[in-house]
Protein backbone atom coordinates (compact mmCIF):
# COMPACT_ATOMS: atom_id res chain seq x y z
CA UNK A 1 0.00 0.00 0.00
CA UNK A 2 2.75 2.38 0.94
CA UNK A 3 4.50 1.69 -2.36
CA UNK A 4 1.38 2.61 -4.28
CA UNK A 5 1.03 5.88 -2.38
CA UNK A 6 4.63 6.70 -3.14
CA UNK A 7 4.11 5.85 -6.81
CA UNK A 8 1.05 8.10 -6.99
CA UNK A 9 2.91 11.02 -5.50
CA UNK A 10 5.92 10.31 -7.71
CA UNK A 11 3.77 10.86 -10.81
CA UNK A 12 3.07 14.32 -9.41
CA UNK A 13 6.71 14.99 -8.64
CA UNK A 14 5.85 15.10 -4.95
CA UNK A 15 6.10 13.02 -1.80
CA UNK A 16 3.47 12.14 0.74
CA UNK A 17 3.21 14.51 3.72
CA UNK A 18 4.90 13.18 6.83
CA UNK A 19 4.26 16.15 9.10
CA UNK A 20 1.66 15.06 11.68
CA UNK A 21 0.21 18.56 11.46
CA UNK A 22 -0.77 18.03 7.82
CA UNK A 23 -3.93 16.06 7.15
CA UNK A 24 -3.85 13.89 4.05
CA UNK A 25 -5.95 11.34 2.24
CA UNK A 26 -4.88 9.02 -0.56
CA UNK A 27 -7.38 7.12 -2.69
CA UNK A 28 -6.33 4.81 -5.51
CA UNK A 29 -9.25 3.44 -7.49
CA UNK A 30 -11.68 2.31 -4.82
CA UNK A 31 -9.07 1.86 -2.10
CA UNK A 32 -8.41 4.32 0.68
CA UNK A 33 -4.65 3.91 1.03
CA UNK A 34 -3.92 6.65 3.49
CA UNK A 35 -5.85 8.79 5.90
CA UNK A 36 -4.34 11.13 8.43
CA UNK A 37 -6.49 13.64 10.25
CA UNK A 38 -5.92 16.63 12.47
CA UNK A 39 -8.08 17.83 15.37
CA UNK A 40 -11.39 19.27 14.17
CA UNK A 41 -11.29 17.51 10.82
CA UNK A 42 -13.46 14.39 10.55
CA UNK A 43 -13.44 12.08 7.56
CA UNK A 44 -15.39 8.89 7.05
CA UNK A 45 -14.47 7.06 3.86
CA UNK A 46 -16.24 3.91 2.67
CA UNK A 47 -14.90 1.83 -0.18
CA UNK A 48 -17.38 0.70 -2.83
CA UNK A 49 -16.95 -1.59 -5.79
CA UNK A 50 -15.99 1.20 -8.19
CA UNK A 51 -15.05 4.04 -5.91
CA UNK A 52 -15.28 5.66 -2.52
CA UNK A 53 -17.96 7.53 -0.57
CA UNK A 54 -16.42 10.11 1.70
CA UNK A 55 -17.91 12.51 4.21
CA UNK A 56 -15.68 15.33 5.34
CA UNK A 57 -16.70 17.53 8.25
CA UNK A 58 -14.75 20.47 9.62
CA UNK A 59 -15.99 21.43 13.06
CA UNK A 60 -17.35 24.91 13.67
CA UNK A 61 -14.73 27.44 14.65
CA UNK A 62 -11.80 25.28 13.52
CA UNK A 63 -9.21 26.93 11.28
CA UNK A 64 -6.73 24.45 9.84
CA UNK A 65 -3.23 25.84 9.77
CA UNK A 66 -1.98 23.67 6.91
CA UNK A 67 -3.73 22.77 3.68
CA UNK A 68 -5.20 19.28 3.58
CA UNK A 69 -3.53 17.11 0.92
CA UNK A 70 -5.75 14.80 -1.08
CA UNK A 71 -4.44 12.48 -3.76
CA UNK A 72 -6.86 10.68 -6.08
CA UNK A 73 -5.78 8.52 -8.94
CA UNK A 74 -5.58 5.34 -10.87
CA UNK A 75 -2.23 4.09 -12.11
CA UNK A 76 -3.33 1.20 -14.40
CA UNK A 77 -4.27 1.85 -18.00
CA UNK A 78 -7.93 0.97 -17.51
CA UNK A 79 -10.43 1.34 -14.75
CA UNK A 80 -13.11 3.36 -13.05
CA UNK A 81 -12.93 5.64 -10.04
CA UNK A 82 -16.17 7.16 -8.81
CA UNK A 83 -15.82 9.46 -5.84
CA UNK A 84 -18.84 10.73 -3.93
CA UNK A 85 -17.98 13.48 -1.50
CA UNK A 86 -19.99 15.30 1.07
CA UNK A 87 -18.13 18.25 2.53
CA UNK A 88 -19.46 20.28 5.40
CA UNK A 89 -17.65 23.24 6.93
CA UNK A 90 -19.07 24.48 10.21
CA UNK A 91 -19.63 28.12 11.07
CA UNK A 92 -16.51 30.26 11.24
CA UNK A 93 -14.27 27.38 10.17
CA UNK A 94 -11.47 27.63 7.61
CA UNK A 95 -9.80 25.02 5.45
CA UNK A 96 -7.72 24.82 2.31
CA UNK A 97 -7.40 21.64 0.29
CA UNK A 98 -4.80 20.84 -2.34
CA UNK A 99 -6.10 17.94 -4.35
CA UNK A 100 -4.07 16.10 -6.97
CA UNK A 101 -5.61 13.71 -9.45
CA UNK A 102 -3.19 11.49 -11.32
CA UNK A 103 -3.95 9.23 -14.27
CA UNK A 104 -0.55 8.98 -15.91
CA UNK A 105 -1.08 5.76 -17.87
CA UNK A 106 -4.74 6.04 -18.76
CA UNK A 107 -5.92 4.36 -21.95
CA UNK A 108 -9.52 3.88 -20.83
CA UNK A 109 -10.13 5.41 -17.43
CA UNK A 110 -13.25 7.06 -16.05
CA UNK A 111 -12.94 9.38 -13.05
CA UNK A 112 -16.08 10.95 -11.67
CA UNK A 113 -16.41 13.27 -8.71
CA UNK A 114 -19.82 14.01 -7.33
CA UNK A 115 -19.63 16.52 -4.50
CA UNK A 116 -22.06 18.30 -2.23
CA UNK A 117 -20.34 21.14 -0.44
CA UNK A 118 -21.84 23.26 2.31
CA UNK A 119 -20.10 26.22 3.90
CA UNK A 120 -21.59 27.44 7.16
CA UNK A 121 -21.83 31.11 8.12
CA UNK A 122 -18.50 32.89 7.65
CA UNK A 123 -16.72 29.64 6.77
CA UNK A 124 -13.84 29.78 4.29
CA UNK A 125 -12.89 27.00 1.91
CA UNK A 126 -10.22 27.06 -0.78
CA UNK A 127 -9.98 24.03 -3.05
CA UNK A 128 -7.26 23.56 -5.64
CA UNK A 129 -7.69 20.55 -7.91
CA UNK A 130 -4.67 19.79 -10.05
CA UNK A 131 -4.79 17.05 -12.67
CA UNK A 132 -1.85 15.23 -14.15
CA UNK A 133 -2.71 13.04 -17.11
CA UNK A 134 -0.69 10.92 -19.47
CA UNK A 135 -0.06 11.53 -23.13
CA UNK A 136 -2.63 9.09 -24.52
CA UNK A 137 -5.73 11.14 -23.78
CA UNK A 138 -7.53 8.04 -22.54
CA UNK A 139 -9.16 9.53 -19.49
CA UNK A 140 -12.66 10.81 -18.98
CA UNK A 141 -13.05 13.23 -16.10
CA UNK A 142 -16.51 14.20 -14.89
CA UNK A 143 -16.54 16.52 -11.87
CA UNK A 144 -19.98 17.57 -10.61
CA UNK A 145 -20.37 19.79 -7.58
CA UNK A 146 -23.18 21.56 -5.83
CA UNK A 147 -22.06 24.26 -3.44
CA UNK A 148 -24.01 26.26 -0.90
CA UNK A 149 -22.45 29.29 0.76
CA UNK A 150 -24.22 30.51 3.85
CA UNK A 151 -24.06 34.16 4.90
CA UNK A 152 -20.56 35.61 4.86
CA UNK A 153 -18.92 32.39 3.63
CA UNK A 154 -16.08 32.39 1.08
CA UNK A 155 -15.41 29.61 -1.42
CA UNK A 156 -12.69 29.53 -4.00
CA UNK A 157 -12.02 26.64 -6.35
CA UNK A 158 -9.33 26.30 -8.98
CA UNK A 159 -9.33 23.45 -11.47
CA UNK A 160 -6.04 23.03 -13.28
CA UNK A 161 -5.05 20.62 -16.02
CA UNK A 162 -1.85 21.66 -17.69
CA UNK A 163 0.17 18.45 -17.93
CA UNK A 164 -0.64 15.67 -20.34
CA UNK A 165 -3.69 15.26 -22.55
CA UNK A 166 -6.98 16.46 -21.15
CA UNK A 167 -8.87 13.55 -22.72
CA UNK A 168 -12.53 14.22 -22.10
CA UNK A 169 -13.46 16.65 -19.35
CA UNK A 170 -16.97 17.71 -18.46
CA UNK A 171 -17.13 20.01 -15.47
CA UNK A 172 -20.53 20.86 -14.04
CA UNK A 173 -20.53 23.10 -10.97
CA UNK A 174 -23.45 24.91 -9.42
CA UNK A 175 -23.33 27.30 -6.49
CA UNK A 176 -25.87 29.18 -4.41
CA UNK A 177 -24.55 32.21 -2.55
CA UNK A 178 -26.31 33.74 0.42
CA UNK A 179 -25.83 37.28 1.72
CA UNK A 180 -22.30 38.71 1.78
CA UNK A 181 -20.80 35.45 0.63
CA UNK A 182 -17.98 35.37 -1.93
CA UNK A 183 -17.56 32.77 -4.64
CA UNK A 184 -14.62 32.36 -7.01
CA UNK A 185 -14.53 29.55 -9.53
CA UNK A 186 -11.62 29.20 -11.90
CA UNK A 187 -10.65 26.59 -14.46
CA UNK A 188 -7.43 26.48 -16.45
CA UNK A 189 -7.11 23.73 -19.00
CA UNK A 190 -4.87 22.99 -21.94
CA UNK A 191 -6.17 20.59 -24.59
CA UNK A 192 -4.53 18.93 -27.57
CA UNK A 193 -5.05 15.97 -29.90
CA UNK A 194 -8.78 15.27 -30.03
CA UNK A 195 -9.44 16.31 -26.42
CA UNK A 196 -12.90 17.49 -25.49
CA UNK A 197 -13.34 20.11 -22.77
CA UNK A 198 -16.77 21.14 -21.51
CA UNK A 199 -17.27 23.52 -18.64
CA UNK A 200 -20.66 24.44 -17.28
CA UNK A 201 -20.61 26.59 -14.19
CA UNK A 202 -23.61 28.29 -12.67
CA UNK A 203 -23.74 30.59 -9.69
CA UNK A 204 -26.80 32.21 -8.21
CA UNK A 205 -26.26 35.23 -5.99
CA UNK A 206 -29.29 34.91 -3.79
CA UNK A 207 -28.38 37.14 -0.87
CA UNK A 208 -27.70 40.86 -0.68
CA UNK A 209 -24.08 41.84 -1.35
CA UNK A 210 -23.18 38.33 -2.47
CA UNK A 211 -20.33 38.31 -4.98
CA UNK A 212 -19.26 35.80 -7.57
CA UNK A 213 -16.59 35.50 -10.25
CA UNK A 214 -16.39 32.69 -12.79
CA UNK A 215 -13.09 32.62 -14.69
CA UNK A 216 -12.13 30.19 -17.42
CA UNK A 217 -8.87 30.09 -19.37
CA UNK A 218 -8.45 27.46 -22.05
CA UNK A 219 -5.92 26.76 -24.76
CA UNK A 220 -6.71 24.19 -27.45
CA UNK A 221 -4.60 22.97 -30.32
CA UNK A 222 -4.61 20.16 -32.90
CA UNK A 223 -8.25 19.03 -33.17
CA UNK A 224 -9.18 19.71 -29.54
CA UNK A 225 -12.53 21.33 -28.79
CA UNK A 226 -13.68 23.45 -25.87
CA UNK A 227 -17.15 24.56 -24.86
CA UNK A 228 -17.72 26.93 -21.96
CA UNK A 229 -21.18 27.84 -20.72
CA UNK A 230 -21.01 29.87 -17.55
CA UNK A 231 -24.05 31.42 -15.96
CA UNK A 232 -24.20 34.05 -13.26
CA UNK A 233 -27.56 35.10 -11.86
CA UNK A 234 -27.97 37.95 -9.38
CA UNK A 235 -31.21 38.07 -7.46
CA UNK A 236 -30.57 40.50 -4.62
CA UNK A 237 -29.58 44.11 -4.04
CA UNK A 238 -25.89 44.95 -4.34
CA UNK A 239 -25.02 41.49 -5.59
CA UNK A 240 -22.00 41.74 -7.86
CA UNK A 241 -20.65 39.27 -10.34
CA UNK A 242 -18.39 38.79 -13.33
CA UNK A 243 -18.00 36.01 -15.88
CA UNK A 244 -14.69 35.88 -17.72
CA UNK A 245 -13.72 33.43 -20.42
CA UNK A 246 -10.59 33.50 -22.51
CA UNK A 247 -9.74 30.81 -25.02
CA UNK A 248 -6.79 30.60 -27.36
CA UNK A 249 -7.00 28.28 -30.33
CA UNK A 250 -4.22 26.97 -32.53
CA UNK A 251 -4.08 24.60 -35.46
CA UNK A 252 -7.58 23.14 -35.96
CA UNK A 253 -8.74 23.65 -32.40
CA UNK A 254 -12.33 24.78 -31.83
CA UNK A 255 -13.74 26.86 -29.02
CA UNK A 256 -17.12 28.16 -27.96
CA UNK A 257 -17.98 30.43 -25.07
CA UNK A 258 -21.47 31.28 -23.87
CA UNK A 259 -21.46 33.62 -20.89
CA UNK A 260 -24.97 34.05 -19.53
CA UNK A 261 -25.69 36.84 -17.08
CA UNK A 262 -29.07 37.30 -15.50
CA UNK A 263 -29.99 40.13 -13.16
CA UNK A 264 -33.26 40.14 -11.24
CA UNK A 265 -32.73 43.14 -9.01
CA UNK A 266 -32.21 46.75 -10.14
CA UNK A 267 -29.39 47.23 -7.65
CA UNK A 268 -27.47 44.14 -8.69
CA UNK A 269 -24.72 44.27 -11.28
CA UNK A 270 -23.16 41.51 -13.33
CA UNK A 271 -20.67 41.81 -16.17
CA UNK A 272 -19.13 39.38 -18.59
CA UNK A 273 -16.23 39.19 -20.97
CA UNK A 274 -15.36 36.49 -23.47
CA UNK A 275 -12.51 36.40 -25.93
CA UNK A 276 -11.67 33.60 -28.32
CA UNK A 277 -9.00 33.69 -30.92
CA UNK A 278 -5.47 33.06 -31.84
CA UNK A 279 -2.58 34.53 -29.93
CA UNK A 280 -2.57 38.33 -29.82
CA UNK A 281 -0.38 39.65 -32.66
CA UNK A 282 1.22 42.41 -30.62
CA UNK A 283 2.17 40.04 -27.83
CA UNK A 284 3.63 37.66 -30.39
CA UNK A 285 5.61 40.37 -32.20
CA UNK A 286 6.95 41.75 -28.93
CA UNK A 287 8.31 38.40 -27.83
CA UNK A 288 9.67 37.62 -31.29
CA UNK A 289 11.43 40.99 -31.29
CA UNK A 290 13.11 39.74 -28.12
CA UNK A 291 14.40 36.71 -30.03
CA UNK A 292 11.77 34.05 -29.33
CA UNK A 293 10.61 31.84 -32.18
CA UNK A 294 6.92 32.01 -33.05
CA UNK A 295 6.26 28.65 -31.37
CA UNK A 296 8.15 29.55 -28.21
CA UNK A 297 6.46 32.95 -28.05
CA UNK A 298 3.06 31.33 -28.44
CA UNK A 299 3.84 28.82 -25.69
CA UNK A 300 4.91 31.60 -23.35
CA UNK A 301 1.75 33.60 -24.00
CA UNK A 302 -0.41 30.53 -23.34
CA UNK A 303 1.63 29.71 -20.25
CA UNK A 304 0.74 33.17 -18.94
CA UNK A 305 -2.92 32.77 -19.80
CA UNK A 306 -3.06 29.46 -17.95
CA UNK A 307 -1.01 30.59 -14.96
CA UNK A 308 -2.67 30.94 -11.57
CA UNK A 309 -1.92 34.66 -11.51
CA UNK A 310 -4.19 35.34 -14.48
CA UNK A 311 -7.46 36.83 -13.31
CA UNK A 312 -5.95 38.31 -10.19
CA UNK A 313 -5.23 34.99 -8.52
CA UNK A 314 -2.03 34.39 -6.66
Amino acid sequence: MTDLVEKMYATLGETCATDPGVAHIEIHGNEVLGLQLVPGLNVVADEREDGVDARVVLDAGVALENPVRICFGLLPERGVQRINMEIDLGEDSRMAVVSSCTFPNAIDVLHTMDADITLGRNAEYAYLERHVHGSAGGVEVVPDARVRLEEGARFRTDFELLEGRAGSIAIDYEAVCMARSVLEMSARISGSGNDSIKIHEKATLVGERARGVLTTSIAVRDQAAAEVKNTLRAEAAYARGHVDCKEIIRDHGRAMAVPIVEVLHPRAHVTHEAAIGSVDAKQLQTLMAHGLSEDRATDLIIEGLLSPSYGGRD
Binding site: D280, Q283, L300, I301, G304, L305, L306, S309, Y310, G311
Partner: peptide
Protein backbone atom coordinates in the same frame (compact mmCIF):
# COMPACT_ATOMS: atom_id res chain seq x y z
CA UNK B 1 1.87 44.84 -24.99
CA UNK B 2 0.10 43.45 -21.94
CA UNK B 3 0.67 39.82 -21.07
CA UNK B 4 -1.99 38.35 -18.80
CA UNK B 5 -0.48 35.99 -16.28
CA UNK B 6 3.11 36.35 -17.53
CA UNK B 7 5.41 37.40 -14.72
CA UNK B 8 7.74 40.36 -15.01
CA UNK B 9 10.60 37.97 -14.20
CA UNK B 10 9.82 35.74 -17.20
Amino acid sequence: ARFEGLSVRK
